[in-house]
Simulated scan of single mutants.
Amino acid sequence: NDLRAMYASIGRPTPLHRAYRLEKELGIEGDNIKIFYKNESVSPTGSHKLNTALAQAYFCKKQGINEMVTETGAGQWGSALALACNLSGIKCTVYMVRISFLQKPGRKILMKIFNAKVHASPSEFTESGRRYWEKDNNHNGSLGLAISEAIEHCLRDESIRYSLGSVVNHVLLHQTVIGQEAKSQLSKIGEYPDIVIGCAGGGSNFAGTAIPFIREKIRGVYPETEMIAVEPRACPSMCKGKYMW
């Protein structure tokens, strides 16, 4: 119930809108084809990332964890975890890719407003960061390097936990709040989707939306529902990547 209250405090459930103007732009007339979208941008930190950040921070607090540490690129995940830790009353440290740290001061400021410590990566605060920082303290950094620094920071103390905002199973589970809400909202207006479509990078946004509908497809309740993941042409890991263990 405490976690549910946190979700409510940050604006859940998020609105489900019908995209009338998009339908018009596509030349769709009448009610034969309807396009709905779930608006996760109304989150206080601007994206769906807060859905898993809240749950992770809440359960870490219950386990007696004093600090959470993570990496961030553009800052969406870092700001989400910063707010979640603030609401749960634990410390947050974020290693932000240096080029984004410099180019996106708004995200850095937002994280600091939520009482997070934010370090430009590479930094002088970890061994992995110092190897690059000492050679060039204006190094642009990378997400991989920021992850290395965050994990090294985490290993300093058993009361610190590293947090990841995408890809892993528990993140996908937390994100299903999106699809569960969408199912409930659609049912109130007598609708059920023929197609569920979403962007897919790490996969948490798409999976969070689609998994509740996939469940009904597997159970045979709505076997014809189609799921479509849309990924960037620059890194089409599902379309063109090598599928292997």
Rank of each mutant, 00 (worst) to 15 (best):
E216V: 13
R4H: 15
C92K: 06
N86H: 09
I109M: 15
E25I: 13
I99E: 15
L87T: 05
A8F: 13
Y132T: 02
G201A: 06
T176M: 07
I218Q: 02
H119I: 11
Y58W: 15
I197K: 00
A146L: 05
E226P: 02
K91S: 07
T225E: 00
G165E: 05
L155P: 01
E29P: 05
A84E: 15
S166R: 03
A120E: 12
N137P: 15
E216R: 00
G75Q: 04
S41H: 14
S148V: 13
V230P: 07
Q76G: 08
S187T: 09
F213N: 01
E191I: 14
E226K: 00
G73Y: 10
A200K: 00
H174C: 15
S187V: 11
V221N: 00
C85F: 03
N205P: 01
N86W: 11
R12V: 13
E158T: 02
P212E: 11
F101D: 08
H174I: 13
P223R: 01
K38F: 01
T225A: 09
K34H: 12
N32I: 04
G46R: 13
I195Q: 04
A182G: 03
C85D: 09
M238W: 06
G179K: 14
P193C: 06
K135R: 10
E124Q: 04
T225M: 02
R161A: 03
E29C: 01
H139T: 12
I218S: 04
I35D: 05
I218C: 03
S43V: 10
L3P: 01
T209E: 12
T52S: 08
H153V: 08
A80V: 12
G201F: 00
R98P: 05
S47W: 11
C235F: 13
